[in-house]
């Protein structure tokens, strides 16, 4: 009982996270391309309740950053002017769910003050904002690519399992070829076949297609196994006896048996594919500037001085951990739920 609550708790948290990412425009104080040229690599803003005179404020406030006169290249808080944090602040324009235009942000401070929850990058862009917007691309890439892999796996696996014979042989041997390549090398090989410089709108679709298309073999094999055993079941034979079409057999009797696997594989593939996008973009083969994605946010770390000096640049990678943890918890729970012992 307790574990069931934990499971649903994790599912709700994860769904909430996705919702926040989806409404990045509302939750982020800036737009993802807005540059604060005078504040490159500014550390995360600290939220204060007590000012330098020791007075408590109900409304939290932040201080601005100014250059540290003693150590060049670093910042100190400018204690002279506190900037109160406004809730439902008015800021740059965005569209709610990509449709309804709005300028209301969950929080913000009045210019010339600025609030950077996760610091800024080399162009002075708010990392928190870019993390949220980057999440839209990375999560969508993971979700869509996983759906693509599974759809392909479902089609190939059920055709192979259901019709058997030479078709099965050909499809599964094809899968062997795909699985005989280390996954990342395969990903790179397919990436190499596609043009390097692509308009921004297309690159996302391209990356999703590449990641999704190469991952069909394993789900297809699993689904084939289920279809193979399901089609020998007597209720399938009985339906054949009524003259059921192949389509009817697959839809009513066989495919419903694969939902367990599809669901479990989905929760396993999504984080793996998010990571694939992150890896590609990190290495400069995926989503590039100025579009944010979790991978392109991390690619700044390829510079030694960024890696060594600006700890907040790691935050996007560190924030991936709880997301992956949630997905793996769900996958484990599903695997346990669907394991033959439990049935």
């Amino acid at each position: 009982m307790n574990r069931r609550y934990t499971f649903w708790g994790v599912v709700i948290l994860l769904a909430a996270f996705h919702l926040v990412i989806l409404s990045a425009g509302f939750f982020s104080p800036y737009s993802y391309s807005e540059q604060h040229r005078d504040l490159p690599y500014a550390p995360p803003s600290r939220i204060h309740f007590i000012d330098s005179q020791g007075h408590f404020h109900v409304r939290p406030f932040v201080y601005g950053w100014k250059y540290d006169a003693h150590s060049p290249g670093s910042y100190v808080a400018d204690l002279a002017t506190p900037y109160p944090v406004h809730v439902f602040a008015f800021g740059s324009a965005y569209k709610i769910a990509g449709l309804i235009p709005s300028r209301i942000h969950l929080f913000g401070v009045d210019p010339p003050g600025s609030i950077f929850l996760m610091g800024t990058d080399g162009y002075g862009r708010d990392q928190f904002t870019r993390f949220l917007y980057g999440g839209q691309i990375s999560l969508a890439a993971g979700l869509i690519a996983a759906a693509l892999s599974l759809a392909l796996g479902l089609v190939v696996g059920s055709i192979a399992g259901f019709y058997g014979g030479w078709l099965d042989n050909a499809l599964m041997r094809g899968g062997d070829v795909f699985m005989a390549l280390p996954w990342l090398y395969l990903l790179f090989a397919v990436r190499a076949a596609l043009p390097l410089h692509v308009p921004q709108g297309q690159i996302f679709l391209l990356i999703v297609a590449v990641i999704g298309l190469i991952g069909w073999a394993r789900p297809a094999r699993l689904i084939r196994g289920v279809v193979l055993s399901a089609k020998e079941r007597n209720f399938v034979l009985a339906a054949r006896g009524f003259g059921a079409s192949d389509f009817h057999l697959l839809r009513r009797h066989i495919l419903p048996r694969t939902y367990n696997i599809v669901l479990t594989q989905m929760t396993l593939l999504i984080p793996q594919y998010i990571l694939a996008e992150v890896t590609l973009s990190f290495l400069g083969l995926g989503i590039g500037q100025p579009l944010p994605s979790w991978g392109s946010l991390l690619s700044a770390l390829q510079e030694y001085y960024v890696l060594a000096s600006y700890w907040w640049m790691y935050l996007p990678a560190i924030l991936l951990v709880p997301v992956f943890l949630a997905y793996s918890q769900i996958a484990n729970a599903l695997q346990e739920l669907f394991s033959p012992v439990a049935l």
Binding site: P271, V278, T279, L298, V321, F324, S328
Partner: peptide, 22 residues
Amino acid sequence: TSTLLVIPDLLVFLLLLLMAVR
């Protein structure tokens, strides 16, 4: 194991590199 399984490889390598640089 369950902690390490959810940490992206990339992060592990970057942290090792950070350690070496620091």
